[in-house]
Write a protein that binds this DNA or RNA. Structure first.
Length: 401
DNA sequence: CGTCCACAGGAATGACGGGCGG
DNA sequence: CCGCCCGTCATTCCTGTGGACG
């Protein structure tokens, strides 16, 4: 019986009425064309091509908001150079490190080791030791290495710029190998917080990725959709809607592609013949829910209580609130649940984290005589939060306040 | 033009669990 | 096994500050 059920699912997936190649909509897919990014490709390519001659390319700093193609362009260019380098005598290698996933100096160093095939324990060694191992092994390989640090702001904000400094000096400790850095960030103000020496070293070359506009997003979606979907399954309004929604979110192509893919998946699950605008709207809600689930999975209990407090205030008609107010109702909820409350200092950090993760929107305001505080708003719907948190029995009884 | 609110957010510290090398 | 070093969560204490009010 179970087998039949599965067979049915397999059959449906394998003979999709909607998709022909779903993977080309996935966020980690590197397409073989990157429309509207020709300039950036050319510039990055001409900088990094130095590696093919065996000399060290300049360090590059790449700015641009999320979903503007920074990662895709970088990976694309590196891939091409790697392919090309096979025909040359020079040894070329690169490491791609996402600092959101590897957000401590230790993990970055550990990843660097991994990328040149050196296994290191994921904790336990001193940083200095891991760094030393990396140097030794990199030098032994006698190569030109490009180190990509994506979403570098996560690393810097939490742990300062020490490793950046170290890495930007790495060539001084290398005899036979050379390394250059590519730093990618979506925080345009990041350089202000960096040590000027790092700033000048990392910013030997700078590349800016402007956001896509709705027209460009539509073009990108159409090209990918041609590959991903069966002919004619997309209703005419679907792509423009995805593009418009994403354009509102500062031209985020990843969001646009996610919307389109998830809309397709929903249509498929429903057994529909076509993907409709309705599916796109459902997709938007589903993506939001997944994001909340994902964030809350990794956040401590009290982050959830902070969100709950926001919902609580919202229910009382306060869509936007201040730090003090939020803290008061957080303490109230903690008492209600018999949980010990944390200090305001800690809550302030949690609010900042939730802000960075996009569940809250917090902005600093000065109200003169009436002090300086943060105006905090939910940036996901109450419904979603309660849906996600409602599953946790610890919160039962509070959720309906 | 100075004051002073209501916090922001940095620094130092500690408890804790995990994992290393020896 | 120990001594050491991590990263994470949290506290305590602290200095800094934009701008409306007086």
């Amino acid at each position: 019986m179970k087998m039949e059920v599965l067979d049915e699912i397999f059959r449906r997936v394998l003979s999709s009425k909607i998709f022909t190649n779903r993977s080309s909509l996935r966020p980690d897919y590197v397409p073989d064309e990157l429309p509207h990014r020709e300039n950036q490709i050319k510039m990055l390519g001409s900088i990094l091509a130095q590696a093919l001659r065996g000399s060290r390319p300049s360090n590059v700093f790449i700015y641009g908001l999320t979903g503007t193609g920074k990662t895709a362009v970088t990976k694309y260019v590196l891939k091409r150079i790697e392919e090309k380098s096979l025909g040359f005598k020079t040894n070329f290698t690169y490491a791609y490190i996402n600092c959101r996933q590897s957000d401590t100096p230790y993990r970055v160093l550990a990843d660097l080791n991994e990328s040149i095939g050196v296994r290191v324990p994921f904790t336990g060694l001193s940083r200095a030791e891991v760094y030393r191992r990396f140097l030794r092994n990199l030098d032994a390989r006698k190569c030109v290495m490009i180190i990509v640090l994506d979403e570098i702001d996560f690393l810097v904000k939490r742990h300062g710029d020490d490793i950046l400094y170290k890495l930007s000096r790495v060539n001084e400790d290398l005899l036979y190998s050379q390394a250059s850095l590519i730093g990618i960030t979506n925080d345009l103000k990041l350089t202000e917080t960096l040590d000027p020496r790092i700033k000048s070293s990392l910013g030997e070359e700078e590349l800016v990725f402007p956001p896509y506009n709705a027209v460009q997003l539509e073009d990108i979606l159409r090209r990918r959709a041609k590959r991903a979907f069966r002919r004619g399954v997309l209703e005419p309004g679907v792509i423009p809607l995805c593009a418009a929604l994403a354009a509102k979110e500062h031209g985020d192509a990843r969001r646009a592609l996610d919307l389109l893919r998830v809309a397709g998946e929903i249509a498929e699950r429903e057994g529909a013949e076509n993907v409709t605008e309705e599916h796109v709207k459902k997709a938007r809600a589903e993506i939001e829910r997944d994001r909340v689930v994902e964030v809350l999975r990794t956040m401590p209990l009290h982050a959830k209580l902070v969100l709950l407090s926001m919902v609580y205030l919202d229910n009382k008609g306060k869509t936007r609130t201040t730090t003090g107010e939020l803290y008061a109702s957080y303490v109230h909820i903690c008492r209600e649940l018999g949980v010990e409350s944390l200090t305001q200092r800690r809550i302030s950090d949690l609010v900042n984290e939730l802000d960075m993760l996009g569940l809250l929107a917090a902005r600093l305001v000065s109200r003169g005589r009436y002090g300086r505080t943060k105006i905090i708003e939910l940036s996901v719907s109450k419904k979603t939060i309660l849906e996600v948190l409602g599953k946790d029995e610890r919160f039962s009884g509070v959720a309906n306040l």
